[in-house]
């Protein structure tokens, strides 16, 4: 009796076509269609009103604020994420599992709560509120609060992208470097970093996308002051509520474009680096 082993890739053609078709269709429906709708709505009355909505002072302030918050939060979380992933995957210490769980905490907490905790800590009625107020330091309803909320929400992205890879890679290479007399920093630069750079890039981009797009947590700590504490997602909501639909979708389209540019930058970077090194990119 012989058993016919059918390779997994040799499905009947109709099955393959069906699966591919379903994937393409759901991608188109769930990703492309909404994106298309954003741009269509933005350009409903032509290019000029859409551009006018973007160069309007409050919108520009929102763009600046969003970029500033991301410019602070992303580097901090990149360093923090690398440090956490490195510590967890390359060293043994008590509390490792607790640390892994802690890193994932922001994923499991509702963004509204992620914003509210900062109000509870640093708001006027909060734990440190009166102390801060006496020194004229403003955290919530100002830039520091927006940065803190964004940091909290986006912390897991870099660490969570790096961890599985670094755990899989094991410690053999680092241990070899150590026996050859390399310092910790040298080991990291010449051994660990080259191994993780693509995962790191992916993590940083995800982190950036979320940092620019975060709504819930930021809405709680923003205070919605025009031209001062409204980030782009908040500005979109405000315009929408003011019946300025073209403006709302124009700013939303800009936000989407920023995300697309980041993705393209990632693709270009991978392609360039891959070609120079003659290495296949993952």
């Amino acid at each position: 009796m012989s058993v016919a082993i059918r390779p997994a890739v040799a499905e009947a053609p109709w099955v393959r076509r069906f699966v591919i078709g379903a994937a393409v269709l759901s991608l188109a429906l769930l990703l492309l269609l909404p994106l298309l709708a954003v741009f269509t709505e933005a350009l409903r009355r032509g290019l000029a009103p859409a551009l006018a909505a973007i160069v309007e002072p409050d919108a520009l302030a929102a763009v600046r604020l969003t970029l500033l918050v991301a410019a602070i939060a992303v580097p901090v979380n990149t360093l923090g994420g690398i440090a956490a992933a490195w510590a967890i995957s390359k060293f043994d210490f008590p509390g490792r599992r607790v640390l892994v769980t802690l890193i994932e905490l922001p994923f499991s907490v509702s963004p509204v709560i992620s914003g509210l905790v900062w109000v509870l800590l640093f708001g006027s009625q909060g734990w440190f509120g009166p102390w801060l107020e006496a020194r004229d330091v403003r955290i919530v309803f100002a830039l520091p609060g927006l940065v803190l909320a964004t940091l909290f929400v986006t912390f897991p992205f870099v660490a969570r992208t790096l961890l599985p890879l670094m755990q899989e890679q094991g410690r053999a290479e680092e241990e070899a470097a150590a026996t050859l007399g390399a310092s910790g920093l040298q080991t990291f630069r010449h051994v660990t970093l080259p191994n993780i750079k693509w995962a790191l890039l992916a993590g940083v981009l995800l982190c950036n996308a979320r940092a620019m797009g975060e709504f819930g947590a930021v809405a709680v700590v923003s205070g919605h002051i025009r031209g001062e504490t409204n980030t782009m997602p908040l500005h979109v909501e405000i315009l929408y509520n003011e019946y300025q639909f073209v403006g709302a979708f124009a700013v939303a389209a800009l936000l989407a474009l920023l995300a697309l540019v980041t993705l393209l930058a990632k693709g270009a970077l991978e392609w360039l680096t891959g070609r120079r090194q003659g290495v296949e990119t993952p």
Partner: peptide, 15 residues
């Protein structure tokens, strides 16, 4: 700054 009336009162209370 605009929002729900109750939420705005809460925000002023919170600083």
């Amino acid at each position: 700054s605009h929002g729900g009336s109750g939420a705005q009162a809460r925000a002023v209370i919170d600083g």
